[in-house]
Design a protein around this nucleic acid. Structure first.
Lengths: 194, 194
DNA sequence: TATAGCATGTAATTAGTTACATGATTAA
DNA sequence: TTAATCATGTAACTAATTACATGCTATA
């Protein structure tokens, strides 16, 4: 009889998100979801449903261990990485193949077809895109930075802060880009081009 | 008896992608998929399966009309926007609510957890991210720009070119950002920081 | 003559979201 | 006492991908 050597499971990126958060010391499923909302969500979001499902799968696969840790009468599970889980996380971080980024940006899609709009409508679309990009940059600065700085304080992990800076920078850049485009459109419409 | 007034269907963004491509003069499902691969794919990708399914739904909903247009013995359908389809497209372009961009970037997710790696491994990860961003910027310049310029030639639609410029600019910016980060990491490791 | 590209579709699967259900604890 | 937050999960659904199947046409 072969023993129950846990067959190396094929993990999706969301699973590594769980493993990584566990490694950063976030214990519960609820905590992971909340941490994601204040850290990785602008480049990798998730939902409660996915978090709990994924944690179950990883536990079944032996990559983490669950322990009851109720608070008062409120049930609660905290998880810890197993040796296999730590190994899987590091293997992933080192593996050569990285999936290309996938983006779904309705705003840019509208911009692509914006020739169907009047000049005024084009300008107001671009204004919207700019405002949205600014708002996201602000959200990152107001909501994601503080947690990242907290994590980084006193020799803790510093890359969460690095990615927060990346996000803020990218959306600020986007906002400037749309502002420039808006200026160009307004100039074009007022006849400097014709 | 009520007549068969086509109940206003709730359309997803992929449906507007079809309508918009049709408006730009791309006729067949195959052509739409190919056009997407050379234009919107870096902010809104799709697959053959989705294109054909979506075109059927839109035809059933009366937003476009199908016409047989075989080439020799090879069957082929070309589609045209109906009045309702044109209206739906414009309503969407003007509608106030724009979904926030959704991103799945495995590379950035790895960067977020990169504290688990050695300094050398961190540098090589960032180098990879930089190379990937550069490659995508090149892909846009080499593959997406030419089609956009073709479309824009002679008073044609110009926003496809605008979005191509946006894409090239964003990925070039990302590449620079990763290059700067790499330099910082290398400096930190060689002891200037301690 | 064989490979790449044109052309259309179905089936199966995967990944992810939204809605729902339940209940405890903490702070206003 | 009521609202917000902590906490866990299931069910239903939606969106999208991958794999498969078929067959024609143009080019090297």
């Amino acid at each position: 009889m072969g023993s129950m050597l846990p067959m190396r499971m094929r993990l999706k990126n969301t699973a590594y998100l769980m493993l990584g958060m566990l490694r950063l010391g976030v214990g519960s499923g609820y905590g992971i979801k909340k941490a994601v909302d204040r850290s990785t969500r602008f480049f990798w979001a998730t939902s409660f449903a996915q978090v709990y499902a994924e944690l179950s799968r990883l536990e079944a696969g032996g990559l983490l261990t669950r322990r009851d840790a109720p608070q008062g009468n409120r049930r609660r599970s905290v998880y810890e990485l197993s040796a296999g889980g730590q190994e899987a996380l590091l293997d992933w971080l080192r593996s050569p193949r990285i999936e290309p980024p996938q983006v779904r940006a309705e705003g840019v899609l509208r911009l692509f077809f914006a020739d169907a709009l009047t000049a005024d409508e084009q300008v107001s679309l671009v204004r919207r895109l700019r405002a949205d990009a600014e708002r996201i940059a602000q959200e990152i600065r107001g909501d994601i930075f503080p947690l990242a700085e907290e994590i980084s304080a006193a020799e803790g992990p510093r890359f969460p802060l690095v990615t927060a800076q990346l996000g803020a920078d990218v959306y600020a850049h986007l906002a400037r880009w749309f502002a420039d485009l808006e200026a160009e459109l307004v100039m074009g419409a007022s006849g400097y081009e014709a």
